[in-house]
Amino acid sequence: MKNVLILSLILCAVPLRGTTTAENIAKQFFPAALTIIGGLPVPPSQQQVVFATGALEPGGPTLIVAGYCNSERGSIAVISAAGTPTMLASVMPESLVGRHIAVRLLDLDGDQRLKIVVRVDQYRGLPGTWVYEWSSGELKLLGPTSEETPGNVASELSDATFVDLDGDGVMEVIDHQAGASYDDNGQATVANEYIVGHVGNSTFAPQPVDYFGQFVRTKATPIASDAHFNATNGDHPRDFILVNGTGDPKTRVASATVTLNGSVIVHASDLNEKIERVRLTLPSVATENILSVELHGQPGASVMIVLRPQP
């Protein structure tokens, strides 16, 4: 039910006085400081304005959270549409760079306080993820963060996925970071890692993840999809977690068969649309592993699978 609650909050982020109105209000506040090179204003045709609306705190007013981008860097604003639209707060962090911006509101902690999750797509490489908390009329950036130059506080989350792995109502963040290097023949070696932790104010103590992947049921005849991953300290027990769907029960699969290195660990009968997650303890994994997943159910349904060393 926790995932259901989360999704309902997202869906409750309905437009204020209609999408067009909220969009127009958001556009009014395109920041003048967000210029193009040379300090010139961004031509309207190049102004990216995205928004989400919702009550950021229980009982609070519905607000517009706007994201702005000039194809190089971005800005976030919280706007009140009550009466004369007013910008309550805005931030334009120096390192909020990227070619495209998106915002959404998520209840990460199950406390009905919506966090502002900002995604900035990059010209190259993985996107960045910035998470803000609306607190006392201010936008507060949540960790993990860095400060490479004075005052330049930036999120270190990259390709982040938020999912409640253990069913406690608090979403974990699984972050994917990668960097490729190329050999003389142009072939890529990728330093690739996943970590899991909780977004927080000051502490972020991530744990390593052996494997994280999303599998989507398509219209095609169900067949197994294989994923390859390597693991170290394979003799150490692993948590295997399968999260069914993305919150809405309609996104859950009807069944799934999961094998690890040829051995079935999730049988088709272990899962149906009413089961939110499957957790198993695996006594060990191999150094090189093949995870095979076959899904049944409505097209568009999906599962997320996490394999990580037990603490």
């Binding site: 989507v216 398509t218 169900p222 067949i223 994923a227 390859h228």
Partner: peptide
Amino acid sequence: SVHYRQNWSLQCSGATVAAIHSPGS
């Protein structure tokens, strides 16, 4: 993962890879 081995599946976002790897995608 073969021939020119660009390993895009390790560098692209999880959502993109999931969409690409889905059967019949």
